[in-house]
Amino acid sequence: MSLSRRHLFGAAALASLAGVTSCAKPYTPEVIEGDGGKDALLENLRIHTPKTLAFSAPTTGFGTHGLLKSGLVGKVSLDYWVSMESLQSLITSDATDFVAVPMNVGANLYNKGVDLKLAAAVVWGMLYVIGPANATKDDLGQLKGKKIGVPYPNNMPDIVFRYLLKESGLSDKDVEIVSFPTGQELMSTFVKGDLEWALLPEHAMSVALMKSKKSGREVSRAIDLQQVWANVTGLPARFPMAGIAVPGRIAKDTKLMAGLFEELTKSVAQVNSASDETIAEINKRTGVPAPIIKQVIPRLQLNAVVGAEAKDDISDLFTRLATLNPKFIGGKVPDADFFLADPR
């Protein structure tokens, strides 16, 4: 039932970018009390996310939009998962109820027999290539004969990039790909000037731009991989990178799930509004400076789309990427039972 070590490491690294800019004191996991207490349908909703901007931001304000007054949930506990082993343990030991996951990790666990359902796709693309200030915008062809750093081997950023290269008429023989285990390590190498090009997710991309500018180096957000995706597929400039999964026992309770879907939708809308209060709360959780948070939120493309409604987009993404490496999703595209329908 366990994932391969290689895919465990890569996905865990993808979810560990919070340390890139964290400068505040460690955030203490919080508990938000409601009105229902022990009489609620679920006494304690245990939410787990990585401590990253992209993964944790969508749950900002979760519980304050009516859920805790509905009688469905007595209180909300917000905590973090720190490794793929801990994530799998949380799910299989019934120690979590609502968990943020990279999209391929949720599929992989499900395909390995873990009782897990996709409640919603939430993060719809956050991958960019940083390069010279005079780079041609959104053109992968300019990378021919060049060297580029790419993080998380055999996981979403790496496989998306290789797929887009292939669809653009290039291969790893045309472009020298230098693999890095984490985005933080790659970002540091780029900022030091040891690389001309690097693929980075947000918020590492915005941090790299900021630090390069401070050092006097002229660089640019050269290539938006979401736009390249649109160019080569004919689809919208987005793809589902991360979402919210729930254990089967939670998924079976349609009344509870209706309330959770509603709360998630409102929480994501709150984050997208980027009010000063919301930015401050995200800063408290992640340690990412407020100016970076304001820049990054629009580029995360946050949109809570119920699992069943996102099924076609997710299945299309997985079908395409699995032509390069089917193991990263557990060998196959998940069947329809993985995707929860909206009970509202």
Rank of each mutant, 00 (worst) to 15 (best):
R5V: 11
F9C: 11
G10S: 14
A11N: 14
A13P: 07
C23E: 13
A24H: 10
Y27F: 15
E30S: 15
L41Q: 05
L45V: 02
K51R: 15
A54I: 00
F55V: 00
S56Q: 04
A57K: 04
P58T: 04
P58L: 03
T60W: 08
F62G: 01
G63C: 04
K69F: 01
V76F: 06
V76S: 04
D79G: 11
Y80R: 12
Y80E: 06
S83P: 06
S86V: 00
L90D: 01
I91S: 03
T92N: 09
S93Q: 15
S93G: 01
D94F: 10
A95C: 11
T96A: 15
F98A: 10
A100H: 06
V101I: 09
V101W: 11
M103C: 04
M103T: 05
N104C: 11
N108E: 12
Y110M: 06
G113A: 10
G113M: 09
V114S: 06
V114R: 01
L116M: 08
A120M: 13
A121I: 06
V123A: 13
W124H: 14
W124V: 02
G125M: 12
G125V: 09
M126L: 14
V129A: 03
I130G: 04
A133T: 13
D138L: 10
Q142C: 13
K146Q: 15
N155I: 07
M156D: 06
F161W: 03
L165M: 10
K166W: 10
K166H: 13
K166M: 12
K166I: 07
L170W: 05
S171N: 06
V175E: 03
V178R: 06
S179G: 05
L186M: 09
F190A: 01
F190M: 06
V191K: 01
V191Q: 02
K192P: 00
D194V: 08
E196N: 06
L199M: 11
L200Q: 06
E202A: 13
L209H: 07
L209K: 05
K211T: 12
S212Q: 07
G216E: 03
E218Q: 15
L235T: 12
P236N: 09
M241G: 11
M241K: 09
G248E: 12
K252V: 03
T254N: 03
T254S: 14
T254A: 12
K255D: 03
M257D: 00
F261R: 05
E263G: 02
S273D: 10
N283A: 15
V288C: 08
V288T: 11
P291K: 09
I293D: 01
V296G: 00
V296D: 01
V296W: 07
Q301W: 03
G307I: 02
A308H: 06
E309H: 12
A310P: 11
K311E: 13
D312T: 14
D312C: 04
I314Y: 02
I314W: 00
L321S: 10
K327D: 15
K332R: 15
F338W: 00
L340A: 08
R344E: 00
